[in-house]
Amino acid sequence: MQNEYTFSAFVFDNVVLVLKEGLRGVRHLSLYARSLGLRVTAHLPGFIRRPTRSAVLHVDHLAEKVERRTSDVVHHYLDPEITRDSETATFAKILIRENAAVLFAKTTYDNLKITLEYLSPTLEVNDKFFISEMLSACAYRKSAAHFNAFEKDCTKAGFLVAQLIRQGVIRTRKSKNAVKSSELNVIQLVKVSCFAHMLWLVIAREYLPERERDLLYACCDLSVVIFEQIEEAGDDPQMLGELLKVHAEII
């Protein structure tokens, strides 16, 4: 199993991921501060409101620029392969990679952003949710420690569904029931997103950009429909793996 913790993976985790995560944290807080600031300024008298609102937006704009520029540097120079490979990653490909955890983490981050936006379109995902790439890498390593060479890939994927939820890779400041989409509360949203992401990783894929996203949406829809079965499976990797296997065959 190609999961030795190599020096390059060590550097990546301790430099790159920390840097990216830190910047995202700043951005997430600045978005929260912006929305809070804008709500507060809405109640101020007009002659104070306008310059205050302008200052809030300016600070937020600066934070966004810093985050984007630094992320571009990180992606371009420190992990260009990961960025490229995450777009066509499948679970089978991740399992045999030397730096499987970081590839998995990048793919997880990208996909969970999409799934959350799709499943809760009225929410501003950047504002309400924080997705942790570091914890996603952690989830992979904790799962991989239990992987058995003879185990089916879907059972391994089932381990990961449970770990992603357990590690709390999706965080929100809102209380558990406060943020609702039309159908799901926060806890359900997190479970469905994690399951849909793993389902996408195990299905037969077409490697066309527009089709990949449609497939992820199809995985989301199916995960919502079978949510009761996902709940029933709890954190049992065998049951989760079986659900993934059965439904991957019909996507």
């Binding site: 159908e183 949406y217 199809a218 829809d221 199916l222 919502v224 429909v225 079978i226 019909i250």
Partner: peptide, 13 residues
């Protein structure tokens, strides 16, 4: 409604 459509499909299959 994508989720209702998906549900149709799942029940059919």
């Amino acid at each position: 409604n994508a989720q209702i459509l998906t549900s149709c499909f799942l029940q059919w299959v």
